[in-house]
């Protein structure tokens, strides 16, 4: 259950996104409102093309909205037409992204893929390596620390990608179908892992998913239909 006394990490107000103009105009997202608190694990559901990725990418500062307000961890990043400019730094510090395709850099081994974001954030080589190892151990892929991404199994690669998303202890973790490449059991394990992280790091997690079997593991569920966001009736209140 949402606890309004807790800190609001993600606040989306009246956000809309449309692509193209005139007849070619697509309203990917209309007037979406969303508040996610620290420690919460939230699911985004909806049919294909309903705007889930669009919403997630707006929260992740990967695309900018056409209208509305977005605040992350108390900081305005989009206010109607005003957009904070160093979004990449913000992403590095506050947001951890877990993509559907793991998006590991093929030329770096598992450890270095994780260490890279730590070094980009200003950690020394040694610090970065140590923390990367620690994270990989924590995600139970420590034994694959030296392996190149091409040699990792789907599940291993996804864990390394999660380790990377968590490296800088972000307050906001966004996951676009993180379990699509996994079977239900493994998917459950990953979500449980994310829940544990949210609790331990006081972070929030927003995950897009299709998998009905893992829905009960989320604190709240939001449905998207034709770009409109509707909270699940069971969670409303």
């Amino acid at each position: 259950m949402a606890d309004d006394r807790r800190r609001v990490l993600v606040e989306v107000q009246g956000v809309a996104k449309h692509y193209g103009t005139g007849d070619a105009r697509v309203d990917a997202l209309r007037n979406a409102d969303l508040k996610v608190h620290a420690g919460e694990v939230v699911a985004l559901l909806g049919p294909s093309g309903s705007g889930k990725t669009t919403l997630l990418n707006i929260i992740g500062c990967i695309i900018d909205p056409s209208e509305g307000r977005v605040s992350l961890d108390g900081e305005r990043v989009f206010d109607n037409r005003w957009l904070r400019h160093d979004l990449r730094r913000l992403r590095l510090d506050k947001i951890g992204f877990i993509f559907q395709a793991h998006n590991l850099l093929p030329f770096l081994n598992a450890t270095d893929n994780v260490a890279l974001v730590l070094q980009l954030a200003g950690k020394s080589r040694e610090q970065a390596q140590a923390r990367a190892h620690e994270l990989l151990e924590y995600l139970e892929v420590g034994h694959r620390a030296r392996a190149m991404p091409a040699l990792l199994s789907g599940g291993e690669a996804q864990r390394v990608a999660i380790a990377r998303a968590l490296a800088n202890s972000p307050r906001i973790i966004l996951a676009d179908e993180p379990t699509a490449a996994l079977d239900s059991t493994r998917a459950g394990i990953v979500i449980d892992l994310l829940r544990r992280l949210a609790a331990e790091q006081d972070a929030c997690i927003i995950a897009v998913t299709h998998d009905d079997k893992i829905l009960d593991r989320f604190d709240r569920r939001f449905f998207l239909r034709d770009g409109r966001l509707v909270p699940n009736s069971a969670d409303a209140g």
Binding site: I62, R88, R89, L90, R91, L92, D93, F97, F99, N103, L105, P106, F107, L116, V117, L120, A121, R164
Partner: peptide, 11 residues
């Protein structure tokens, strides 16, 4: 890969 680098916040 460059897009990924941008995504993870590389300057």
């Amino acid at each position: 890969q460059i897009a990924t680098l941008k995504l993870i916040g590389a300057p």
